[in-house]
């Protein structure tokens, strides 16, 4: 099983909530700018697919799933 976190690049508004609340420090500040001028976070390793980042995202930009 692989744990996957997808951030909808152009939906993100760089609030940083997902970075703050990820219990595993998987997410960090991004360096690429989106259509609206925000810098969405980048996804690193170690995700446990807890869904916390998606739960706190005000823009519903995050999808979390497990895949075989």
């Amino acid at each position: 099983m692989k744990n996957v976190v997808e951030i909808d690049f152009n939906r993100c508004k760089e609030c940083g909530y997902c970075i703050r609340f990820c219990p595993k420090g998987v997410l960090s500040k991004g360096e690429k700018v989106n259509k609206k001028g925000y810098y969405p976070p980048v996804v690193g390793d170690g995700c446990i697919a807890c869904g916390t980042c998606a739960r706190v995202c005000p823009d519903t930009a995050i999808t979390v799933y497990k895949e075989d």
Partner: peptide, 21 residues
């Protein structure tokens, strides 16, 4: 694929006009 969190069905594709956060 087993979803832990997925965008709710009732939502359209609109991006909100709200500020970040």
């Amino acid at each position: 694929r087993k979803y832990v969190y997925k965008r709710p069905e009732v939502f359209t594709d609109a991006i909100t006009t709200y500020c970040g956060g």
